[in-house]
Write a protein that binds this DNA or RNA. Structure first.
Lengths: 203, 203
DNA sequence: TCCATTCTGTAGCGATTGCTAAAGAAGTCT
DNA sequence: AGACTTCTTTAGCAATCGCTACAGAATGGA
């Protein structure tokens, strides 16, 4: 079952990766089709034939981002022996990722569409949903900690997960503002003081 | 020394306030001149005659925002008896402000330009500078706490200030995502656990 | 009264936006 | 070979962007 017609002249996966990097750095609104086609090495009709629209391309780029950049820190969180260690692993992995010299700084999910224009409401809601699911992943890890006995049964894991996410969001913006890796690492040190304390028995 | 020529037909201060609200909600890129003139009740030539350009108007809007929205929480921080109480007052005042029903959610300084397009680099850097000065204000309050004796001399106040700012940045995004006031309040509770602990003697 | 000055309205500038029609190129099918 | 299908190219669409030329309106000064 071979494909008919003229074969595609570019690597779709590689083009998507390039698009992801541009969206990551410039956000959704800040990225034009011209910028995308230049980075992807193709012309607009090829982009639209392969990806449908700017919004559809962005959603695919977000999915790729979550797979490549989002999953590893989450796996580090799940693989840690305790919930507190998991949260710390998550935060530290993200600090490293947010300050990687070879990539745009900060988290794409956090920074790509914070403005509130009616036109890009769909994009904004989509990213907000991704952020909520990230928070849910933290809460699930804390719940497992309760089951494992390393988080007190009475702890408000929803509030604690919201706190961890809040710190993560803030770290992304700090990274965009040019904060150094050690600076963000020191912030995580402080953030973990609260986590450790709240996870301690009879807190 | 009266003004010559036709007098201005609108209240400049009120028009600026309207512009601020639009920029606050939609960000810099997300706000068009048409949207601004509609909200301000004027036509483009009047806007340009009174404010110069979109960027100049935005900078004035930011200055107004800091005066109206930013100063009160900072004063609350400075007026508190201890540095820890000051940080808590700052965070709680901001949570109330970020979730005010009558205003756009979150902080304008944090949310108005997170994307990284070369065109709006000036705007982005300008806001980043405002964020840095907010962090500096927290650090100064912590330094006063050291002088007053309610913050240990050995405490790393730069790192602690960065931590507080990180939480603040995160709170803004959480507010934009629709987080309720009680939810953000609970996040502040958790954040303060770290602050209280780090400010405790011999920490 | 007449001029100078300044603001306001209409109308539209050049540039850029996301996106696409139309034609040619490069394959598989019969 | 020739039809069919699919991709790529050129060129440009309508809409919107930030901004402004120009003429009319409203004031103060002489």
């Amino acid at each position: 079952m071979t494909v008919r017609g003229r074969p595609r002249g570019f690597d779709r996966a590689e083009a998507l990766h390039r698009a992801m990097e541009v969206f990551w750095e410039h956000g959704y609104d800040g990225t034009s089709i011209g910028e995308l086609t230049a980075a992807m090495g193709i012309r607009p009709p090829s982009l639209y034939a392969a990806f449908g629209s700017k919004e559809a391309l962005f959603r695919e780029a977000v999915a790729l981002y979550e797979e490549q950049e989002g999953e590893p820190p989450l796996r580090a969180m799940c693989g840690a022996p305790t919930a507190a260690a998991g949260v710390e692993a998550l935060l530290r992995a993200n600090v490293l990722a947010y300050t990687d010299q070879d990539k745009p700084t900060g988290c794409m999910i956090v920074l790509a569409a914070t403005t509130y224009t009616p036109i890009t409401a769909g994009i904004r809601d989509f990213l907000a949903e991704q952020r909520r699911s990230a928070t849910a992943a933290v809460r699930d890890r804390l719940a497992r900690g309760q089951a494992d006995g390393d988080v007190p049964p009475g702890a408000d894991i929803d509030a604690l997960a919201a706190y961890v996410s809040t710190v993560q969001f803030g770290l992304s913006l700090q990274a965009r503002d040019g904060a150094a890796r050690e600076e963000l690492s020191a912030v995580v040190d402080r953030a973990m003081v609260a986590v450790e304390h709240l996870v301690r028995p009879t807190a």
